[in-house]
């Protein structure tokens, strides 16, 4: 049971850590189709965080 709560917590904490860790993505290169890293990384990270959150919802959903 404890392992499940650790996983649930990580699924919320990992995307949050990246979002608040500005120096992780505050750079110009590599560019993607002319967009600086700063912009394209954060935009694609939206899709990744939806993945984290869906996994959270899925694990949480089984419990009820």
């Amino acid at each position: 049971m404890r392992a499940k709560y650790v996983i649930l917590a990580l699924l919320i904490l990992i995307p949050s850590f990246v979002n608040l860790g500005v120096p992780i993505y505050n750079r110009e290169y590599p560019e993607l189709i002319g967009l600086p890293f700063f912009y394209w990384f954060q935009t694609l990270w939206l899709v990744a965080s939806a993945g984290f959150y869906l996994a959270f919802t899925h694990i949480k959903g089984k419990e009820q």
Partner: peptide, 17 residues
Amino acid sequence: SAKKLRKSTALLPLYGV
């Protein structure tokens, strides 16, 4: 339901695109 709420919330970052 709480479950449906969770699911739509999890998908909402896609809106951010």
